[in-house]
Nucleic acid binder design. Structure first.
Length: 327
DNA sequence: AAGTTTGTCAACCGCATCCCG
DNA sequence: CCGGGATGCGGTTGACAAACT
């Protein structure tokens, strides 16, 4: 007797989402919230598994998502957090507003890993690679080192949160790492002793210096209780019209201000039509104050979607659309 | 121009954890 | 406390596009 599948998969669609499916999902969640992911597909008329709907919403359709490549500052934050937390992507994501665990995980695997190896740092251990190891890494036949519980991240979850928080706070205080530089709190036990974290921050250190390119104003931000997913839990309480508007109003705003850097000579819009983060001067999360904008979008801005004929997995329905196109 | 390789990332899968009766 | 369903999480896959030969 195996475990029951999460949903009746017969007749359910898989693969990339179409424009129509996205619209249905957005419309439904904005009007009804998502009381129950399992029931949502039936209620909304989607031929999708509830899990799939949840993932699509969390990773792609949520209005508070920030799109585009991670900035250097965010990258540095991810590296620091990874040194502390290991592959606990959702925890890491919870410290990067507007970013999803999936996005961070992908970015880690495709960009940061390579970057660290280039710098002679083992992305698993955050320790320097020996010459031999470095050459092995370069040849792609590096054996995995498992210094902290990267391979078994779930095992250490059983540690009590309070203990974790206490330990980590102490460690961070002692070592004055930049992880908590902007004031967020980490509720995890370090997998590495902070003094063991060896990250060359010279390349990005200017982000924290006086000529700081990044100005983070966290004056009124209450971090979601646990993870990126918990943001969606907040959304689950979404109700139509004014209530939703209130929700945004009451949401404590994190105002991220990305000051243009000197190297912002690049194109504002990349080839796939997305804005590059580096050139976005100001980005306000939860910048939508009125649900009517969203309604407007759904009803009148159908061409806000840029379909490619065979699905819209990369359509322009991102933070920029929500904030620029709609308002 | 055509074929091949490499890189990226959305989406899936299966297990773990949470929650409720 | 226990069992079962719902949800969350992290690893992995595969489609697509870009780069290379």
């Amino acid at each position: 007797m195996g475990r029951q599948p999460c949903c009746d998969k017969v007749g359910l669609k898989k693969g990339p989402w179409t424009i129509e499916e996205d619209k249905k999902l957005i419309n439904f969640i904005l009007t009804n919230g998502h009381c129950c992911w399992r029931a949502l597909p039936k209620l909304s008329g989607l031929l999708r598994c509830g899990k799939s709907c949840r993932l699509r919403w969390i990773n792609y359709l949520r209005p508070d998502l920030k799109r585009g490549l991670l900035s250097e500052y965010e990258e540095q934050k991810v590296i620091n957090l990874h040194a502390q937390l290991g592959n606990r992507w959702s925890k890491i994501a919870s410290h990067l507003p507007g970013r999803t665990d999936n996005e961070i995980k992908n970015h880690w695997n495709t960009h940061i890993k390579k970057k660290l190896r280039k710098m002679g740092i083992d992305p698993l251990t955050h320790k320097p690679l020996s010459e031999q190891e470095a050459s092995q890494q370069a040849q792609g036949r590096k054996k995995s080192l498992v210094p902290h519980d990267d391979k078994n991240p779930k095992q250490d979850r059983q540690t009590k949160d309070e203990q974790e928080q206490h330990q980590l706070e102490q460690a961070l205080e002692k070592n004055n790492t930049s992880v908590s530089g902007d004031g967020f709190c980490i509720d995890e036990v370090p997998l590495l002793n902070p003094h063991e974290i060896l990250i060359d921050i010279s390349s990005s250190h200017h982000h924290h210096s006086n000529d700081d390119n990044v100005n983070i104003n966290t004056s009124k931000f209450t971090s979601p209780s646990s993870s990126s997913s918990s943001t969606s839990s907040c959304i689950s309480s979404v109700v139509p019209g004014d209530e939703f508007s209130k929700f945004f109003d009451e949401m404590e705003i994190l105002d991220l201000k990305w000051l243009s850097s000197d190297d912002s000579s690049g194109d504002d819009i990349s080839k796939d039509g997305k804005f590059n983060n580096s050139t976005v001067d100001t980005m306000n999360l939860w910048d939508i104050n009125d649900l009517s904008s969203l309604d407007m979008f759904m009803n009148e801005h159908d061409d806000g979607f840029v379909g490619n004929g065979n699905g819209c997995s990369r359509m322009v329905l991102d933070q920029d659309s929500w904030t620029f196109d709609l308002l």
